[in-house]
Every structure is written in C-alpha cells, then in structure tokens.
Design a protein around this nucleic acid. Structure first.
Lengths: 341, 341
DNA sequence: CTGTTAGCGCTTTCAC
DNA sequence: GTGAAAGCGCTAACAG
C-alpha cells in the first residue's frame, strides 16, 4: 500500500511509521497504549507523532474499531436558557468521557426521522429530548439499533430516561399559591405539548385535590412570550377570570405578568403569577418571580453519562432516573420580598 | 469479501446489493444519484434500500470520499442568548447544506488546542468564535490544513471572518447618551477581552472625539452579572463617579441597573445605563434597557455558509464579512417610554 | 449499463 | 516485541 498523503494534517499513520522507522502496526500500538512495545520503539513513535502532529483520522479509526467516539444529541431548538444549559452539561460530560458531540436541532427539519437516522450513522448512541417536537416514534425506531436515552420524556421501561422532577414540585408550588388564599387559580400550558407540562399539570391537580378543591381545566397555550401576552389580554378584558396563574414556564409567566401590570392589574395583589425554570429574568423583574429551579445542566450531564455507559456496555441500574428540583419563593406569588412564607 | 453484518442498522451496502440482486457498485451508484443506471436496477435498489432502511455508514463513506460532510463549531460556552442564537443559525444553515455539526465548548477543556485538533479530524472545516477564551493561535495552527472561519473575531486577511458591526453602533449609542446631556459617561467592559469589546470601546471613544470631548478610560470588568453588581456598589459608595454607563453587554447593564436602583439611585435620572445585545430581559426591566441588537442568528448562518463554500471550493468573495446592527432605544438612556428621541 | 477490484487510514489477528 | 496482511463499509476507476 502506498504512503497515502491527504487528510487534514496531511500526515497518516504511514508517515509516522516511516519517520520512526517502524511498521504502522507499532505506531498504532503505542498510540492505543496497547500491549507490549519496547521502550525504544515507543520513544521513536512518540517523537515522530509529536513532530508530525499526528492525529488519527476519526473516520478511518471508526471504520476499523466499529464505533465513533461520538454522542448524538437532538434538541427541539435552543431558545431560552433551558436547552443551552442542558447542552452545556451534556457536552461537558461527554467531553470528559472522550466523546465528541454532534448536535441536531429538530426545528426546521422537514424530515426529522430521516435526519435522525443519518445522524445515527455517525455516533455511538443518541440522547434526545422528549417533546412534541420529537415524536416518540423516532426514538422507538432507533432503539434496538443504537442506544438511546430520552431526556425529560416519559419514563419508559424500554428506553433509558433521565428527567427532572415535575409532579411533586408542581404540587408544591400550587399549594403555596393556594395557601395565599387564592380561589381561582389557573394552569397555563398545554399538558399535551410534552411529558413535563403534563406532569406539572398533574401536580397542579393533585394540590387542589389534597385540599378538596376542584382543579380548573388547563389553559392550553404554547410556552411563548406572545402567547402569554395574548392571555394576559384575556384576563384584562375580563374574558378569563382568575386571581392566580401557575405557568408551565418562566417565559410565559414573565410575559403574562408584564402585560397584566401594563394593563393596571396588580401582581401579586390582584393576580399572583408563578413560573417554572428560574431563568435569569425571573429575579430581575418587579415583583421577582416565584418559580421552580431545575438542575438542567446536571440533567444534561447525566444523559451523557448514561448514554456512555450504555454504549460501552457498563452495567447501568435500570429504570428512569429523576433528579430533584427546588422551589424558589420570591414575591410574585404574594410573599413579601425577603420575607417568604 | 464477506457480507459484513454489524453497524447501526445492521444493514450494509452488501445486504442491499444482495437483496436487490445487483452488485454493490450499482447500489452505490443509485444512492449517489450517479450516472447511468437502468431504470429497472434503480427501482430494485431503491426498494431494497427502503425495506432495509439502509443508510450508508458515515465513517466508511468519509474514508472513501475523503471528506466528512460535517462542520465543526467551537464556542466558548453557551450561557446567555448570544451563543445559542449563533448556534441555531449555524446549525440551521449547515443542515440545509447537508452538513452535520459537531460542537465543542472551550469552557472546561484543559487542552483546547489538542481537543480542536482532534475535532478537526472529523469535520471538513471549522468555525470558531474569536474571543480570549479561544486563542488566535488555535485558529492559525489549523488554518492551512482545514478551512477555518472566525466568528466575531478580528478581521484578518489570512482567515475568513464574519462579524457584526461594532464600532459604528457603539459610536451611535454613545452619542445618543451624550446627547442626553451626560457629562461623565463611562464604558464598562474590558477592550482586551475580545475584538468586539475592543471595537465597541473604539466607538465610544470616537463618539467623544467627534464632539471634542475627552473619553474616559474603560472600566475593565468582565461581562458578568456579579461584576456589574460590584461595580454598581462602587458607584453607590461614591468610589466611582458617573452619570451614564455604556456597558459592553446587556447582562452587565442589567446587573448594574438593578443594584443602582436597589441603592436608591435613579435610572436614568441620576445615571443612565445602556447595554448591548438586546437580550430578552432588556425589555422586561423597568426602565426598559436601551441597547444594540445584533442579528446573531444570521451571523451563525453566514459562518456556516462561508465555511461550506470554502470546503466545497466554491469561489468566495474574500475579505471580512460584517453585518449591520440596530440601535434599540428604550428608556434607560433617558428617553421617555414610547417617546424616544 | 454493470460487475470487479483497488484503495481510503486505521486496528488487529497471526506468524515469526 | 514486531511486521505482514486482512479487513471495517463504501466509492470510483476500469473493464466488459
């Protein structure tokens, strides 16, 4: 075989071997930290590799070893701090484990299943977010051929899942609002948009029931600023009656609160507002937003680790992994600043 | 050669060929949309591929064609909306161009140059952000072996660069503040932290000079919330005198403004505050933040496209590419709400 | 139009 | 301990 040129650096295992005066097998051995190699050979190879700044071509290595040392991650999109944090956690842990991460955003792909299958072709496994943007069928189809871990999706028995706690925290924050003496508290968000919103609504319902109260139907709107504004207008116009809203995320809560105040409604006096996520803005607004903080970065890290264990075949305790969240009491719920509860 | 099993789907080009009753060459041909293939063969192959859900193994293909159909992107980190937007734009355009994106975050890598070299091994080219977190030497080293495009870095002649406009906008926003009759306006941010901050300061200086005023030295602090708070304390204590601050980003501006108000200083009456980026929070705070909006997503898309052109050898108009920004006047500069200028 | 075959760069037996 | 050689799955000449 010829001493192939080409490739990024231009240097191949052949160049290194030649330079070191050994066979490519030896080069491969020392670079893989493999078995017995004489110290002399090792030195020569190391030196040559260093001088040539040799880095094995990933594709060639992948083909030979039949894995990619890369994790796939598919997220709906990237707006807001949630996905970014998740991604940071994921990338960080993946990198620690020596895995590259190839990222794919579902948004704007017209053939998501196809794109995912193509993605699967260059990674050892993939993590994907459970949401309406990423149909469960997509993960089901993959599972069996490649390890998959579902993030913030439905706990399933057939696929690894990592989630942050939803139901209990939702019950807690709802109870807190109810505890402020509110009578008509509404849940803002569509339980069908994804497992997390669904579970938060479940907690909302539970809080009511444990007090013997009748929970209201959810107000099914998307978790975007614009939807919050529109909704606030409905409250202002008297179209929707309420004295407290439990929002499925902060973006929504913030938008509602802002518009409500612009319209002359007092928050929390007239209507209390609470959110979910604890985004940066939450503590900047007046009144500061009561919300639930999720350890999102950790969630991402966990997903990467879990995936890696599956890929490498390390035994993994089965079952869904759920990590706890934290209620953050500020003022928008009716508590006074710096004097919660 | 045996009919290899293995791989994600388990199906290889051999399985497809066998199933279709043709040679692997024919399979490859129709799948590459290559030259003359009989309609009959095409149908059979297509059918077989479909039934087997065959997707070529990326590594094998890469090795054969000697490119990866993937773009690398290295970012410092991912907090705040800036990088996320950039990434979304990049991913979106890259996907449109049929490129996967493998992402690397500089943060936390102790051997960044090494990591980048390894990354370079699995992509056709990479885009990286110009910042102090990613030394220019890193890109210089790569350039020559792989196409590189620098985002928001120093316009260089040896490397492709895409940037959003800084100096002129900075001059504009500073002039605006000066126009409000402020006498001691300060620039918050470290010009040495990166090309963008440096250019913004240059605009700050220019604004002063064109009015025959003496610009103050920059207050060199990092663009983080905590640094803003600390700085606001210095103003409150009288340690630092000023009646207007031009901040190098919104996060900083927001933090300063918040602390100032907590300390009883009126914004904008006592001190005006303006920022840069137009993050979500900017329009939620009271007073709403005057700032500069950057088309960040577009910047990312541009980077992906430029990179792709380089990779594929399409002729590219040389020279730095800079896209315009937009001054967003709200109230924190001294303008009254809904009655700018 | 189609099949055979020679690599792409790397890992890994298998002999020596 | 070390080299020769056989693949990994795919593409691209090269003959028919």
């Amino acid at each position: 075989m010829a001493t192939g040129a080409a490739h990024s650096n231009g240097t191949t295992i052949y160049s290194v071997a030649e330079r070191a005066g050994v066979s490519i097998a030896s080069v491969s051995r020392v670079l893989q930290g493999s078995t017995a190699v004489s110290d002399k050979t090792r030195q020569r190879v190391l030196a040559a590799a260093e001088e040539l700044k040799y880095v094995p071509l990933a594709a060639a290595r992948s083909l030979a070893v039949r894995h990619h040392e890369a994790h796939g991650l598919v997220l709906p999109e990237l707006s807001g701090p949630y996905y970014s944090e998740l991604l940071m956690g994921f990338e960080s842990r993946a990198a620690d484990l020596g895995q590259s991460v190839v990222l794919m955003l579902a948004q704007g792909k017209d053939d998501l299943p196809g794109a995912v299958r193509k993605l699967a072709t260059r990674v050892d496994g993939l993590a994907m977010l459970g949401s309406s943007a990423i149909p469960e069928s997509t993960v089901t189809a993959l599972h069996g051929s490649k390890p998959v871990v579902l993030i913030a999706g439905d706990p399933r028995t057939d696929v690894d899942t990592v989630t942050s706690e939803n139901t209990h925290s939702a019950e807690e924050i709802t109870s807190h609002v109810l505890g402020h003496g509110r009578s008509t508290v509404r849940f803002l968000g569509d339980p069908d948009s994804g497992p997390d919103v669904r579970d938060r609504y479940a907690g909302f319902v539970a809080a009511h029931e444990s007090l013997g109260r009748e929970p209201l139907e959810p107000v099914r709107i998307a978790l975007r600023e614009s939807d919050g504004t529109t909704l606030a207008d409905r409250i202002l116009s008297g179209d929707l009656q309420t004295d407290a809203v439990v929002c499925a995320n902060d973006e929504l809560a913030l938008a509602v609160m802002k518009r409500l105040r612009e319209g002359g409604t007092r928050v929390p006096d007239d209507v209390a507002v609470v959110g979910w996520d604890d985004v940066m803005t939450a503590r900047y607004v007046e009144p500061a937003l009561t919300t639930v903080r999720q350890p999102v970065r950790e969630l991402g890290a966990l997903a990467a680790e879990r995936l890696h264990r599956r890929v490498t075949g390390i035994a993994v305790e089965d079952g869904p992994q759920v990590i706890p969240t934290q209620l953050v009491i500020r003022s928008s719920c009716g508590c006074r600043p710096d004097a919660p509860h």
